[in-house]
Computed example of a mutant assay.
Amino acid sequence: MAFIIRRLVQSVVVLFLTSAIVFLGVYAVGDPLEILLPADASMAERAQVVASLGLDRPLYVQYAAFLGNALQGDFGRSFVFNQPAIQLILQRLPATLELAFVALILSIVIGLPLGMWAGLKPRTAVDETIMTGSILGFSLPNFWQGMMLIMIFAVWLGWLPSTGRGQTGEIFGITTSLATVDGLRHLFLPALNLALAQIALVIRLTRTGVQETMPLDFVKFARAKGLRERRIVGVHVFKNILIPLVTVMGVEFGSLLAFAVVTETIFAWPGVGKLIIDSINNLDRPVVVAYILVIVTMFILINFVVDLLYAVLDPRVRGRS
Score class of each variant (00 low, 15 high):
E212N: 12
D307A: 08
I241Q: 03
R77P: 14
A197R: 11
I89N: 05
K121M: 09
L201Y: 10
V202K: 00
N69A: 13
L59D: 10
W144T: 04
I171F: 06
G254M: 04
A290S: 06
T297R: 14
M214A: 09
A47D: 12
L216N: 14
T265E: 05
V210N: 01
V317G: 11
T180P: 01
N282C: 08
W156L: 15
M151F: 15
R318C: 12
F75Q: 02
R320N: 14
L201T: 10
D31E: 03
G76S: 08
W269R: 06
W144I: 07
I135D: 09
R77T: 14
T124W: 05
A100D: 02
A200V: 01
E229Y: 06
Q48P: 12
L53I: 07
G76F: 06
V306D: 04
T124I: 08
G73F: 02
D314I: 07
D284V: 07
N193V: 15
R228K: 15
V317F: 11
L149Y: 01
V248G: 03
D127T: 05
V312N: 09
L275D: 07
A224D: 06
L275K: 07
L71E: 07
A28Q: 14
F143P: 03
S162G: 14
L53Y: 03
T163G: 12
V305M: 11
D40S: 12
Q145K: 14
I243W: 05
E170K: 09
V251R: 12
V26R: 06
Q198Y: 11
G169C: 00
V287F: 03
V288S: 03
N193R: 10
M148N: 06
G271K: 02
V251L: 13
G173C: 11
F153M: 06
Y63Q: 03
Q83P: 09
D182C: 02
F188L: 08
P161M: 02
T263F: 01
F81Q: 13
V272W: 07
G183R: 01
M147L: 13
V49E: 13
G133Q: 05
I174A: 10
S177R: 01
A64G: 08
T297M: 15
F23T: 10
F138I: 07
P94Y: 05
